[in-house]
Nucleic acid binder design. Structure first.
Lengths: 122, 122
DNA sequence: CACGATACCTAGAACTACTATGCATTGCAG
DNA sequence: CTGCAATGCATAGTAGTTCTAGGTATCGTG
């Protein structure tokens, strides 16, 4: 299953903030995590993630710091800020609202009768 | 609560297909329905909806036909096609997958420990 | 010492969506 | 009987964003 561009875009920010809410991490690791975590359905590229991280930092939702492990390359670790946590909560609320609306439509709730249902082709 | 542009974009197609899956309708009515249905949270404009309907028609997901009611203006009624129903099912599956992934992150499932959790600021 | 994996970054083309505007009809308030 | 709000549909063009493609560099391993 290939996931729509729009859906990928809409879920990117809450996913990253959600992951960082559990602990610091860095770009490459986040990438692997998301790709595995979704069973390969969300095919993120680094070209998607890095600009997003930069944007989140510019907005003050995350902070970053370089770290050089004993062995291996330098990594830029990201940490969520209080503002970021607030944003995450906001995003969760929005997702909940939209999912509720969709569920309403998909379950054909009684409030969803069409306003007019004329015979087709008259 | 103002809903993100991305989220609006991602939910627009499944919402419209979902509404039309319950019966024919026309632009203006769909607009009112969505705005009310979401408690005013999804603020759709006609400039968003009409191009979307045209696109869905171009893709063969919906069909349209003009109708003139006894009283009132002419309306262009839209009806979902078999292809559209297939697309709707596909979209539902995608939404489910993404929502599941998000839920996993938000609930801090045990599989979501960060790969490395170094002391910050070292 | 070469190659695959790790790790990060960005310019610019390619695409897309939203604003603003336009048109036409109907029904109701004044 | 007139003028305005609501109904109803449509699109051009800009303003914006996103993805592709490429670039840099280090490390571990065969």
């Amino acid at each position: 299953m290939h996931i729509t561009k729009d859906l990928v875009a809409a879920s990117a920010t809450p996913l990253v903030l959600g992951i960082l809410a559990e602990g610091e991490s860095y770009g490459y690791a986040i990438l692997k995590q998301v790709n595995e975590l979704s069973g390969g359905q969300l095919e993120w590229t680094d070209g998607l993630l890095y600009p997003l991280l930069h944007r989140l930092e510019r907005l003050g939702h995350v902070e970053s710091a370089w770290q050089t492990p004993e062995s291996g390359r330098k990594r830029k670790y990201y940490r969520i800020t209080d503002l970021g946590r607030a944003e995450l909560a906001e995003q969760r609320a929005q997702w909940t609202a939209v999912v509720e609306t969709l569920r309403g439509v998909w379950n054909s709730g009684p409030m969803l009768r069409p306003i007019a249902a004329p015979a087709w082709g008259v």
